[in-house]
Design a protein around this nucleic acid. Structure first.
Lengths: 321, 321
DNA sequence: TTGTACGCGTTATCAG
DNA sequence: CTGATAACGCGTACAA
């Protein structure tokens, strides 16, 4: 910057003013500064700028698992929305580990992100408290924690899950297996609670960890137990369950019905296509980003609940109804 | 930091020394400082630290498309490797747009990442030159650019593609359709060049853009032209092609054979399972991170070429051979 | 071993 | 409209 100033025959202050679009500088000096910048290939140091302004124009996003397409979609939506407001997003991948999540959150805070978007790995509120204590704007995404005091953006699957339960019961299923998420996550508990509630308690539940492998194992256990329908509460566990079904040579929906929470582009390719509960991922990501930006702006955004939708495709025997 | 110093009855210099694990401070003063840090919940400002040390312990990764599982896997591998070396990764999503790619690269440079990993959207070398001119360590990943002078890490699909070509010809296919990537990307060109070369020129090529929609359109065109086999040079275009095949009610491999570049966890679930050319994504990501760290360390890492492997599953009529 | 003082690259205040 | 100058939070030579 000093070089640029010298080159243009002005002070660094003036260079700064040109850079920040202040009204002050004469068109003529502005021209000279711009020319010098161009010639020297000068680029301002964002670190120094942030140190001075205490604003990084950056949002932190800590997600549970980058390899889970559901979160990848959310990440992309967050990024789109943020960019359209002049913000950058730094993504941290917690890999469904509370420890790694905490590490990332602290790293992002140390780098002074202007706000934080968090998909909590567990419903333990301690990390959330830590962030709040630091006074950093925080929004929870997809999952919540016990006694959360910050805005939460998530999908509401109640209606869809209830409809699905009715559908399965109506199709004559009396032994239904639920492949649920971890009991210490809000989505892991709520989805299976709502579903089994609608079922009237006639379900068998196995908890997985939102990963493919756990879906296979849970499916194996439930099939051995004689269920005639399987509901996977996450796309990765659904993938695992489908693999187990295929490995056993079972036919869908004749031998076993299946539905999956989260839609994926390849579900319609299977035979029969898979019935799913689709979450509005893009809207969730965008809404979360907007809420966080509002919070940063000093406003008090409300919680957001977007509803998930049941998409019937045939894997629950819909065609036969 | 001043607060901590006061609280512990020392100078900020001593606090700094404790923070950075210098040998100097007495165990006793160290103890006091640590206590003060704990009590005040002090966290060092990474911005200020980086400004002073000119090192951010951060790697930039600009990828073509976060929603493409291939890149998501790479991103995760890069992150794992980087973290194990004490580095953090900032991911930028270029969305297959050269413009957005350039924006992200500049943003990352402005934030003074210690090095940059780039999956170039096109083979135009100008952006790469710009980075190199800035003296920032740079490694190209998956794709290269014309006249690249920096280390490149990528998969070599020649052997697998040649084997696939032989297989298809051996199975009696004489009209083979290739769904290639954009001609202005190295992977878009090379894969179809190698494949059609091995075929002896008897292929019809349609270029897509590494996205699902373009895969459907390309497949439609090629099927209309009467091909009996389809090879998609990327998993997303493969997804699109499979959708088009399903929509037309064609049977694989009887009516049409298909193979896809990139493996995906759901390919084995289809009936028949899809034959693929699998890239070593994890190793690519890790190798790229290692190369970049070596470069940052002042070494001169060589290019890395990992070989992709043909995985026969049945969608090219292997069972009938 | 510890403290003082300077500088990293910016922005903002205050004179002029 | 422009130019000194202080300050952002930290690391480090230098002196004590």
């Amino acid at each position: 910057m000093k070089d640029v100033a010298q080159h243009a025959g002005v002070s660094t202050a003036t260079v700064s003013r040109v850079l920040n679009g202040h009204a002050a500088p004469t068109p003529e000096t502005r021209e000279r500064v711009l020319a010098a910048i161009e010639e020297l290939g000068y680029r301002p140091n964002a670190l120094a700028r942030s140190l001075r302004t205490t604003s990084t124009q950056t949002l932190g996003l800590v997600i549970s698992d980058l390899l889970n397409p559901f979160f990848a979609e959310i990440a992309r939506a967050v990024e789109d929305e943020a960019r359209s407001h002049g913000y950058c997003v730094v993504i941290g991948n917690a890999d469904e580990s509370a420890e790694q999540e905490a590490t990332y959150v602290r790293t992002l805070l140390d780098r002074r992100v202007d706000g934080l978007l968090l998909c909590p790995a567990t419903d333990d509120p301690s990390l959330v408290r830590e962030v709040s204590a630091g006074g950093v704007p925080l929004v929870l995404l997809d999952r919540t924690v016990r006694g959360a005091t910050c805005p939460v953006v998530r999908a509401d699957g109640s209606e869809a899950l209830t409809a699905l339960a009715r559908r399965l019961v109506g199709a004559g299923h009396s032994r239904i297996g639920v492949i649920a998420g971890p009991p210490d996550t809000s989505t892991g508990r709520e989805r299976s609670d709502v579903f089994t509630g609608a079922l009237g308690g006639a379900a068998q539940i196995v908890h997985g960890d939102f990963r493919q492998e756990s879906g296979s194992q849970a499916a194996a256990k439930l099939i051995d137990d004689g269920v005639t329908a399987l509901v996977a509460m996450d796309n990765l566990m659904g993938l695992g369950a489908l693999g187990e079904i295929k490995a056993r040579g079972l036919r869908i929906p004749h031998d076993i019905a299946i539905a999956v929470f989260d839609d994926q582009p390849w579900f319609p390719l299977l035979d029969p296509p898979i019935t799913v509960i689709a979450q509005p991922t893009v809207e969730m990501g965008r809404a979360a980003a907007r809420s966080l930006l509002a919070l940063i702006d000093g406003q008090q955004p409300d919680d957001v609940r977007l509803s998930a939708k049941l998409v019937l495709r045939g894997s629950c025997g819909e065609a036969e109804l």
